[in-house]
Design a protein around this nucleic acid. Sequence first.
DNA 1: AGCACACATTCAGGTTCCGTTCAGCTCGCT
DNA 2: AGCGAGCTGAACGGAACCTGAATGTGTGCT
Lengths: 225, 225
Amino acid sequence: MRLLVVEDEKKLAMSLKRGLEADGFAVDVALDGTDGLWMATEHPYDAIVLDIMLPGLNGYRVCSQLREQNIWTPVLMLTAKDGDLDEAEALDTGADDFLRKPFAHVVLVARLRALLRRGQPERPVDLVAGDLRLDPSQRQCWRGSTEIELTAREFSVLEFLTTNAGDVVSKRDILDHVWNYDFDGDPNIVEVYVRHLRRKIDEPFQVASIRTVRGAGYRLIATSP
Amino acid sequence: MRLLVVEDEKKLAMSLKRGLEADGFAVDVALDGTDGLWMATEHPYDAIVLDIMLPGLNGYRVCSQLREQNIWTPVLMLTAKDGDLDEAEALDTGADDFLRKPFAHVVLVARLRALLRRGQPERPVDLVAGDLRLDPSQRQCWRGSTEIELTAREFSVLEFLTTNAGDVVSKRDILDHVWNYDFDGDPNIVEVYVRHLRRKIDEPFQVASIRTVRGAGYRLIATSP
DNA sequence: AGCACACATTCAGGTTCCGTTCAGCTCGCT
DNA sequence: AGCGAGCTGAACGGAACCTGAATGTGTGCT
């Protein structure tokens, strides 16, 4: 699990880094708000530990700017000893939790783990045609409830057919979209992949969802059990 | 929003009740742990405010017994002034957050709202995939009932795979989350660690929970004996 | 300090599997 | 029947991945 620690007190920052690394986290450090914001934008952290008092851009602003950019990495804010209102405000600017200084290391770790546990994936929608389902982000494919293993090329071809489900797509179209534009090999390769796909997604289920349209190309139709 | 306050100091309990009701919550009060546990079991609260120091059954036990009964109502624990360890333990027994006494009313409300916003059942502390179980706080790992010794790196890689169980994660993802971002060594190191993990968590049990997805990465799937 | 040990990382050779090509076949149309 | 479009299995070359061992690097122990 990879963390970003944004803290300007160098000594504290390094001690946090060492401590958290001992607990098995991978830790990057930013020493001011501007850096912190940039790093949080560029890299996919699992959580961010964010001091409020920072030179340049303070913690509130870092947090709210992240949220504006639609980055929802969990944020744990470090607040001053006696700032009750700070804490309420921290949560309002989009922090997920806060910790009052000074804090014990065990507490920091426990809170971070709680944050990470809450996690949350929300996924882009699957492509569907009948009982055939594709998840492009995971390169996974199902017919009904049984998963089907596809190679990268196979998946790409099927993905293209599925996004154009119901329509006829020519071999040229498929070549242009799945292979590089400069591909000038044998168009027969499309036929080969259609064969592979039929063997994997149709024959075992005794359906024929990839239809040949002679002289024009292929058409994927919705089929159900 | 309906809350349960479990607090034995009658004066504090009533003041909490009045304050929270003024903020628009519906509030029930239990004056000891046994009552609290019973009420939390019988009624569907949206959140529970739970004191640690209680006659009869203390707060930790109330909380862990709730979790054992598979009740994942968000719990906010009230801890003593100086109990750092209390707090870590609170989170470990399944609390979602805690607040150190004495606290300002605005903070209590802000934290409760944050909890309610997160809503939704919390997952148990351990990461689980089939009969493989990880405890990130202890860095321990079991397959069924036999414990498996892992090094720090091995654990981190497996932890990341497990939090994304079922999904394909690329070698780049793994490098980004487990190593520091300035790591620019050979990605082959991921393969090496996958090899180590397979030898420890799969081969002795004759399962294959870490699948290779050629060209895409790795995928951890749930396997059982 | 010096040593032993465990862990992290690199390296090089081996293996598997995927993408592509090719040659022969089948099918539908005129 | 004859033609062209599409089908199919096999074969090959190379990339991706696997794997055992060698080489760094730090940490605790005596």
